[in-house]
Design a protein around this nucleic acid. Sequence first.
DNA 1: TCAAATATGGAAAACGTTTTCCCCCAAATT
DNA 2: AATTTGGGGGAAAACGTTTTCCATATTTGA
Lengths: 335, 335
Amino acid sequence: MSTMQDVALRAKVSITTVSRVINNSPHRVNRVTRERVLKTIKEMDFRPNALAQGLITKRTMTVGVIIPDISNPYYAEIVRGIQDRADDEGYAVILQNTDRKLERIIQHIHLFREKRADGIIFSGGIIHGYEPLSALRELSQRIVVIGRHEVDFPAVRVDNIGGATLAIQHLVDLGHQRICFINGPEMSTSSIDRLQGFKNALAQNGIPFEDRMVKRGNLTPESGYQAGRELLEMPDRPTAVFASNDLMAFGAIHAAGDLGLSVPGDLAMVGFDNIQLSSYFNPTLTTVEIPMYNLGTAAMKMIVNMASDNSFDRYQWFKPRLLIRHSTQNKVSRE
Amino acid sequence: MSTMQDVALRAKVSITTVSRVINNSPHRVNRVTRERVLKTIKEMDFRPNALAQGLITKRTMTVGVIIPDISNPYYAEIVRGIQDRADDEGYAVILQNTDRKLERIIQHIHLFREKRADGIIFSGGIIHGYEPLSALRELSQRIVVIGRHEVDFPAVRVDNIGGATLAIQHLVDLGHQRICFINGPEMSTSSIDRLQGFKNALAQNGIPFEDRMVKRGNLTPESGYQAGRELLEMPDRPTAVFASNDLMAFGAIHAAGDLGLSVPGDLAMVGFDNIQLSSYFNPTLTTVEIPMYNLGTAAMKMIVNMASDNSFDRYQWFKPRLLIRHSTQNKVSRE
DNA sequence: TCAAATATGGAAAACGTTTTCCCCCAAATT
DNA sequence: AATTTGGGGGAAAACGTTTTCCATATTTGA
């Protein structure tokens, strides 16, 4: 690759001038010189070395994104939002999957420190257990989390408790009393909140909560299938199941089918997230919509604002919405 | 952030020694000195500046990935494969979406050049229309494409033609004669090949091909729904539909439902890719499996080999496999 | 005992930019 | 005529590493 030196030589100017042209700096450069340089740059197909630039300007125009798993459509959609916004702002996005493993989270944070990422967007799970003060202080100036976190970082959030409450209330309104919950991983704050909403709604409706009404999954359809199967094989089979995400809901619906139960005929099902396919699944899935794409763009915008010393709201909230579809179509006759 | 200079000062050694410790260079450094330096590094929570490192070593341990759209599970799975392998090898992954827009492809390639990415993995669509020789020459030493491409880059490939043939043969064997195809975007080489396989299989079975049997979608469920609807409303309704990917197959199944047709009762459906949800969809989807995750890991491995001057196979092939599920369960009675 | 080898460490150049000074010259002002 | 102004340009330091030489002290070998 050619360097500014090469360009300068060929255009018979100094490196300084080339730099001025590239960044069209306030220091004026003569029109004909500028054009000569520009032409040379084009001829040589010169591109400035971002490493050298970053080294000296202390800005890399790079943000790191840490998520549990890109093959989960929920995160994929968030990432899409982040990227689109990043593209607009001239930022590049480095993506890292953690599978919610603490050591990978830490490792990735260090990587972003080494690469001098201008910002870090963190979603899913909790960072804890390793926090040298220096790292944390430094991070707090450039990190945004999507969702809830123990440490008080700037955040983009959704009211998961409220969303879950909406879902359960909907089921109760349909006459359901035996409602089960398919929980997410222990480390997922979203799932913790959704469980909380589930409990709240039951309490509000005077329905007693029992531990056996909750099974844990890991947000995959497989785990939803497994959990669904266990729940549906209980002697007092639930009439409705609420899953902590759509993927598990799909798995549970499949389990119902394998057990000869139809949804919504024999069983109502509600998911969470509203991933793209939930309106195409058969039956179409009643679910709580999370504006994933917007979470992504909002987080990225926050990073940009932080980096440019703009003022910005430290917290931004999004409201979930209940989308009623076919999977909760049947009313239940009161017993 | 502290620098090697800071560490050196505190540990009472030279920068050189700190560097030697970090890279545990062959040039030996005394055990007690090493430990002192290590301790200081830990105390100061020092991390080497990757920009400075990259500037001088000419290796950034970064690969760029260019895909049409991360929210398509097909690409998400590929990316997951790339990332897992990249993680193992110590590489970071910068991800870019193109929506198959040429100008974005070009823009992203330039970005990767500026950031001095050690390698670029390209999937989906075709690069053409902008190719200064210098860029191309330089790229050919560090680019790997997943799929087919006009330019002869090292590649990881799948036999899409063969896969499509498998699918159609399966339908023909079930007695289907009126088979339609939902095509992908114009620029998708995969879809072009899948269409080719479709035509080949028809020809092999003496079934005439007509243009109206093919509708174009853009790989989303929405477009599959639309295409499916059009196909199913034709007077001589097809008995089977083959979609260029699973997402569109889901859409088409949904369209069938809206028209009062059941799958597989009234209509057989075959997809392509085998994304995670196709075995959970209702009905479960017969599809041609692409080992997406492995495509990703293979591509990344190829990049690593290229970067380290290892010998490597310039082309690597994967075989697709037909997975027969419920969406093609019913036999058709010959007319 | 002396030369040669080895172990350990440092100084300084280099990577490719941005940015701060500084300089020169022509035009404008006094 | 002398001074100021401002347009246009360059030299050199700085960013934080790696790497090449070189230096010194200690061991080893004969």
